[in-house]
Design a protein around this nucleic acid. Sequence first.
RNA 1: GUGGGCGUAGCUCAGCUGGAUAGAGCAUCGGUUUUCUAAACCGACGGUCGGGGGUUCGAGUCCCUCCGCCCAUGCCA
Length: 592
Amino acid sequence: MELHFNPGTVIEVALRQIAAMNNAFSEDFEPEVRPADPKFGDFQANGVLGFAKSKGANPRALAQQLLEAAQESGQFDPARVELSLAGPGFINFKCTPRYLWDWLNRYADASDFQTGAGKLQAGRKVVIDYPSANTAKQAHIGHLRPMVIGEAIARLLDFCGAETLRDNHIGDWGTNFGTLIMQIKREGIDLNQLVTDPLAQLDQLYKDGSALEKDAPEIRDQSRAELLKLQEGDPENTALWERIVDISKAAFETLYQQMGVRIDVTLGESFYRDKVERVYRELTEDGFAESSEGALVVWHDDVKKFARDNERPYPFNIRKKDGASNYASTDLATILYRVEHYKADEVVYLTDARQQDHFQQLFLTTQKWFAARKYPIPDTRHVWWGTILGKDKKPFKTKSGESIKLQALLDEACERAFTVVTEKNPELPESERRTIAESVGIGALKYADLSSNRTQDYVFDWDRMLSFEGNTAPYLLYAVARINSIFRKAELDPEAPLEGASLLETDTEFALARKLISLPSALNLTLNDLRPHVLCTYLYELAGAYSTFYNADKVMVDDPGTRTRRLLLCARTRTVLITGLKLLGIQPLERM
RNA sequence: GUGGGCGUAGCUCAGCUGGAUAGAGCAUCGGUUUUCUAAACCGACGGUCGGGGGUUCGAGUCCCUCCGCCCAUGCCA
């Protein structure tokens, strides 16, 4: 068996090939190789069971046949992997100590992992639409998930070889500008005079404005008129708008830096304002768009929910009845631009769960439109997530019921982490405790967001996320810090090559080694549905296997062979943990 | 009404798309340190997987049917 980054893939490819040449199987046989429970082996193939069922064959006999064919093929060197038949027809694969050891020596540092993982998405151009913040509003807790999940997914795709473009599709052209400009004019505000926290003041102006609109239709009309003037290029409104956007960008930049969010381009909705006409024209010409109640809409009769004869009409509204564009218009113009200008093979959108209908309609419309025009059709993916809940299981808010400001959340995370660090490690200088607290605090916040399945709501709990027990950032960071400490005391570079190690011996060493070689499986699985919690679970299990090993097997023993092999396990664990944490956007620490 | 998500241990969550005896952490109880960071480790306790039916060698996972919660549902994004 080849010494590949992902042994599971090698097994799968080999089995598929062997089955294809065997009379008892057919081309469509899927081996279904996956990591196994350690008590059975390292990998298992479950595919025979399903296959036997579909053919009405005896699964165990069939599995026996495949196993023998595999052994005869010469593709499974007994010195590297042991095959066995189990239960109703599972085939188990157990890597030999030799193989584990060779793998650990072959895949030694971050660049080895990068090379191995880099084949997964090689050559793909992926545009990632995030964090797509609003303009003229302060960032609040609702902006946490797009920043955290978006950054993690972007890093993951980068790591796996994709050529990514992080496109910050800001909402700088929405209806809210009508309201905001209306209110600015009403109050006679000079935007250049706003000094302290200008974004907060814009936020307030908007709130006041929309409060007024609530029970005054004439004010609502006024706002709509201001919006239309802006969209038609009125110089006064354009100048106001530019200033608002600048204020917003500057404020968000500070947050992006703290959050470790990296952006390649910021092309907001305004960028597409002269590109929506083409969308209207092409969709109308091709017969996809038509007028309905004064608006321009697209019906999708092939999907019940969006069909025109549905009991509750739910068209894709691409131009409002007042002639103004909306987010459907700009999203259509945007995807065209991403394909034509950036040659995107895939576009990944990151938003919360509530926008699923919109993206379903957007994707349907894009496919039909692009097919009709013979434009390249990109893969599209909507990566969505649930709500952050308080302990009462309702959306997490302040006691007075307002949304929590993101900056306040970050500050509290760092402050709480600082208290903990000071409690545990009072002898460290304050500046270092502050640095540690920032990594631990922000890291804990991010990890809490990433470690549960993103499609579900999760309960926000400071104490749990900052705990050193359980599936948390501090637990993982602590594991890294302990490894660093060993190398520091031994006066060794954890990234330097290690020579003269003896072969693995104890159960805890083996358990750790087996966990290490399952990194590629974890990456694969994470990438499948872009679910970072899969990677989190893996890292947590790895840190757990390390802690068990650390407690059971002393590293700095006298015997040089034993010492070196344990140091090697420490070094590998460290590299994998650091690599994983960085993929999640969490900064590892030398000590804590 | 329709569509989406969900219901797993007292609490917070996993469960790799139908696989082997349903797993972690917290909490509770008990144990481990002259040893590299005990911010750790080990063990015990804890489950009619919302209820009921079905499909099959096999169901937390798929189908049907109820119960309950969250979200979306024509011009905000």
